[in-house]
Design a protein around this nucleic acid. Structure first.
Lengths: 210, 210
DNA sequence: TTGTTTTAATTAAACGTTTGTTTAACTTTG
DNA sequence: CAAAGTTAAACAAACGTTTAATTAAAACAA
């Protein structure tokens, strides 16, 4: 595992923000260098290329995702529904705290052409699915969760709803209703609203017969 | 309303596909000209600029969305839940038949900077929300739908789930399980699976007390 | 501690491509 | 003959990357 010095990390974080706001091809290395207050040549010097800088962003955040998954695996004592609730909250928390990276993921996963980062995205998605699916299917086998549920699509609903909130919040934020809120307050507000909604949704479809 | 001749329309459709697959900035006007089999200068000649070509793509699809919304407004005789089911099916159908455009929307809605197309996206989203929200809130007022539901987030769930399926299907398609399916068969399969899942979800959260 | 040598960091300038757009000449159409 | 369509070529600007020169930091021997 590589370690980044202060300057390298600053370049990575600036690149992450700009890639999220304007897309990979919409951001020039000169933009990044200027905002990170470094010479343009430093980017090639440290990372080799613009493409590899994007990969560095991914390595940084994917590392955090691995830690996230490992921590989720430790909650063995909870009841299935409580486990799902905990998982929902943690996932909301993670995604809203990593909004820039989630934007990049949303963009890059749409790319048709194969690329290293596209493979990384789907590798991570499969890991996440492999972790969440058994929680539901085990509870289904035990008769705790209702069986006639498309687990893969339910998780798609979880990801999709949170993902959809990120661009929507950019617009919602402009509403005068929220103008006195700080950025952090607004994010907490979104987290709570999302959490309530998704928990109701999961409880309704997993624990009620039709 | 403008009319496009065969050549103009072919440019628009090629541009839509390439913008969807590689992003706006990831696609060059030379790419578009080559795939549409026209001279590069024709793009400026017909549309003025690359940016305005993107806007032409939007005008074409937004026009279709307006027609879609108008048609939805005519279903007044159905019961609320049936109305929601119909709405879900129509929306799934529309989005999966307009995958290229939906990809472009997904990308462009992430852009931080203001732009004509960004405004168009949110204008359309607001129209869609303004149409769907009263169907639910009216039924809530009549005691048919459960009241303690976040309507805006429920619609976010609808959009988000379908939106999430589009990039996921690019990967899912590669699974050997689906290798004998034609492209159309696969899309029908996705539509059915999505429809079943989303209807269950909506029924569960809208019609059951907790 | 010195001075010396080696390595790493930093810079402005230049590199060759590619970008979106325009020009001016030419052809087709009505 | 006028208008619209079409073309290859050229345009300046921006792109990602590299170069070569310079400064700063680290390592080392005396």
């Amino acid at each position: 595992m590589e370690e980044y010095n202060e300057k390298q990390l600053s370049i990575i974080l600036v690149a992450e923000r700009l890639f999220a706001d304007k897309g990979f091809h919409g951001t020039s290395v000169r933009d990044i260098a200027q905002e990170a207050d470094v010479n343009i040549a430093m980017i090639s010097y440290y990372f080799g290329s613009k493409e590899k800088l994007l990969e560095a962003v991914f390595r940084l955040r994917m590392e955090a995702s691995r830690v996230f998954i490992d921590e989720l695996l430790k909650n063995d004592t909870m009841a299935p529904l409580e486990k799902m609730y905990s998982l929902i909250d943690r996932y909301i928390n993670k995604m809203l705290n990593e909004q820039y990276f989630q934007c990049i993921m949303s963009r890059e996963q749409l790319n048709r052409d194969k690329s290293p980062v596209r493979d990384l995205i789907w590798q991570l998605k499969r890991e996440m699915l492999g972790l969440m699916e058994p929680i539901i299917t085990d509870a289904q086998a035990d008769g705790i969760f209702y069986k006639d549920v498309d687990v893969m699509l339910l998780l798609t609903t979880l990801f999709g709803t949170i993902n959809q909130i990120i661009p929507a919040s950019l617009i919602l934020r402009a509403d005068p209703e929220f103008k006195d809120m700080t950025e952090d307050e607004f994010r907490e507000y979104l987290k709570n609203r999302l959490s309530t909604h998704l928990k109701k949704l999961f409880k309704a479809i997993l624990t009620h017969e039709f």
